[in-house]
C-alpha cells in the first residue's frame, strides 16, 4: 500500500478540485440540490452543536408551565410535563442521526461485502446469500424490525442492528448487480493478467467502481432508516422516555392533538419530515453528481 500512496499525492488535489467544480455545477444547475445540501448541513450542524444551542435542559420538568403553546420563551411550546419542546427536538437530532448513520453504515459494510462476493464468485455463495436476502425480504420489513428489537431487548444498539438487518438486502442487491456487470469487463481481465488475486481484483479494481450507485443508495436509505428508528420508538420499542427522540415525542404528543395541543406532535414530526426530505433530495443530487453522463 505504501508505494501506492506515493503515487497518489500529485493526483488527489486536482481530482478533488474537479469533483468540487462538478458539484458546484450540478448544484447551480438544480437549485433543489442546493436546498438539499443546505438542509443537510443544517441537520449536521444541529446534531453536532445541539447542546450549545438549547435554551433549556431538555429533561427539566416544570409542572407550572405544562402544555404552553409556542411563545417567545418556548419557541415550540412545552409538553405535558412542562419540558421545552424546542430543546428536546434539537437534542433528539443527534440520537436519531446516530442511530440511522450507524445502521446504514453497518448495512452498507455487510451488505456490500455479501453482494460483492455473490456477484463476483457466483455459485454457492450467490445461492446462499441470495436465499438469505430473500428470507429477509419475505417479511414485512418493519414487522421484522419490531420482532428483532422485541426479541433482543429494548436498547439503542438493538434498534441499530434491526435497522441494519432490514436495510441490508438493498445494499447486497445493488452491490451484486454492479459487481456482476463488471466481473468480465476488460479492465478486470487486464487486472487478472497483471497478477492480481481474486480478492485484490474485487477489493481494489471492481468495488471502487461500484461506489457511485452505492452512494446514492446510502443517501436515499438514510431517510428511510431515520423513519424506521423513529417508527420503532413511536410504538414503544427501542429508545425509552424520557430520552428526547422524535418518534417518542410524536407518540407522546399524539394523545394531545385531539384536545387541541397540536404542537406536541407537530414539531418533532416536522423535524422528522425535513430530515427525511433532505436525505431523499440529497440522493437525487448525488446521483446527478456521480452520473458520468452529466460530466460534459
Amino acid at each position: 500500500m505504501a508505494d501506492r500512496q506515493s503515487v497518489a499525492p500529485p493526483i488527489a488535489p486536482a481530482r478533488t478540485r474537479r469533483l468540487l467544480g462538478h458539484a458546484v455545477y450540478v448544484i447551480g444547475d438544480n437549485p433543489i440540490t442546493a436546498i438539499a445540501f443546505a438542509l443537510f448541513a443544517l441537520i449536521i450542524g444541529v446534531a453536532v452543536f445541539g447542546p450549545l444551542l438549547i435554551p433549556f435542559d431538555p429533561l427539566e420538568t416544570n409542572a407550572s408551565r405544562a402544555l404552553m403553546p409556542p411563545s417567545l420563551d418556548n419557541w415550540f411550546g412545552t409538553d405535558n410535563l412542562g419540558r421545552d419542546l424546542f430543546s428536546r427536538v434539537i437534542i433528539a437530532t443527534r440520537l436519531d442521526l446516530m442511530i440511522s448513520v450507524a445502521a446504514v453504515a453497518l448495512a452498507f459494510v455487510v451488505g456490500a461485502a455479501m453482494g460483492s462476493a455473490a456477484g463476483y464468485w457466483g455459485g454457492w455463495i450467490d445461492i446462499v446469500t441470495g436465499r438469505l436476502i430473500d428470507t429477509i425480504m419475505a417479511f414485512p420489513l418493519f414487522v421484522l424490525a419490531m420482532g428483532i428489537v422485541a426479541a433482543l431487548g429494548n436498547t439503542v444498539e438493538n434498534i441499530i442492528y434491526a435497522t441494519a438487518i432490514i436495510n441490508l438486502p438493498f445494499y447486497a442487491r445493488v452491490a451484486r448487480a454492479e459487481v456482476r456487470i463488471r466481473r468480465d469487463s476488460g479492465f478486470v481481465q487486464a487486472a487478472r493478467l497483471s497478477g492480481n488475486s481474486d480478492l485484490r481484483i474485487l477489493a481494489l479494481h471492481i468495488f471502487p467502481n461500484t461506489l457511485p450507485p452505492m452512494m446514492v443508495q446510502i443517501s436515499l436509505n438514510m431517510g428511510w432508516a431515520i423513519l424506521n428508528a423513529a417508527g420503532l420508538s413511536f410504538i414503544g420499542l427501542g429508545v425509552r422516555p424520557p430520552t428526547p427522540e422524535w418518534g417518542i415525542m410524536v407518540a407522546e404528543g399524539a394523545n394531545f392533538v385531539v384536545s387541541g395541543e397540536w404542537w406536541l406532535a407537530f414539531f418533532p414530526g416536522l423535524a422528522l419530515m425535513i430530515t427525511v426530505f433532505a436525505f431523499n433530495l440529497l440522493g437525487d443530487g448525488l446521483r446527478d453528481i456521480v452520473d458520468p453522463r452529466q460530466r460534459t
Binding site: G186, G195, N209
Partner: peptide, 25 residues
C-alpha cells in the same frame, strides 16, 4: 485488449494502470 478504454480501470490514472503489473509481477 480490443477496446482500450474498457480495458482500463476508470478510477486508475494511466500511471496506476501501468504500475499495477509492475508491482504485482
Amino acid at each position: 485488449f480490443q477496446d482500450a478504454l474498457a480495458s482500463l480501470n476508470p478510477r486508475f490514472t494511466a500511471r496506476q494502470s501501468i504500475a499495477d503489473p509492475i508491482r504485482r509481477l
